[in-house]
């Protein structure tokens, strides 16, 4: 039982976080709360990718120890044990995803400030009511 829980626990966390983020994006009325939900959902997807890249059994950070330049310059071709380094590819992709997510958050916050300047509120229902009364 413990074995089963531990073997899938990160994926369960990912599912719960996606649920929380989706609920905040749909169910909450405040626009900042919706953005917080979007951030939580993005982090959940990144957690999923990094969990796929993890390796048990003594695997460490994907950085080579020792004298790297000497090994390169003199053509010494060491046999590198693949099982001793975690999978680096998901890390690279998620590095890009984090930076892009902060860019989308910045543009969304700028749009949110613009909405507040025009309607003087951040509540979705009140904004829709003002728009309906204005006949838009």
């Amino acid at each position: 039982m413990l074995e089963y829980v531990v073997s899938k626990f990160n994926f369960w966390t990912y599912v719960i976080l996606v649920g929380i983020g989706l609920y905040a994006m749909i169910g909450k009325k405040n626009l900042v709360k919706k953005l917080i939900g979007m951030n939580i959902m993005q982090s959940a997807v990144i957690l999923f990718y990094v969990s796929i890249g993890a390796k048990k059994g003594g695997a460490t950070v994907p950085i080579f120890m020792g004298d790297a330049h000497a090994a390169h310059g003199h053509g010494i071709h060491e046999i590198i044990d693949v099982a001793s380094y975690v999978n680096p590819l998901p890390h690279v992709l998620m590095l890009t995803a984090i930076v892009v997510s902060i860019a989308t958050t910045g543009v969304a916050l700028a749009a949110l400030i613009l909405i507040f300047r025009r309607y003087k509120t951040l509540n979705e229902d009140e904004i829709l009511k003002i728009r309906r009364e204005a006949g838009v």
Binding site: S7, F11, S51, K56, L89
Partner: peptide, 24 residues
């Protein structure tokens, strides 16, 4: 999905060994 931290999962055996071996 494969188990968390499984070294023989498809994601860890398909292309990433070549990156780890050839990158240096």
């Amino acid at each position: 999905l494969p188990d968390w931290g499984d070294p023989d999962s498809p994601a860890s055996t398909h292309v990433s060994p070549e990156y780890i071996q050839d990158a240096l």
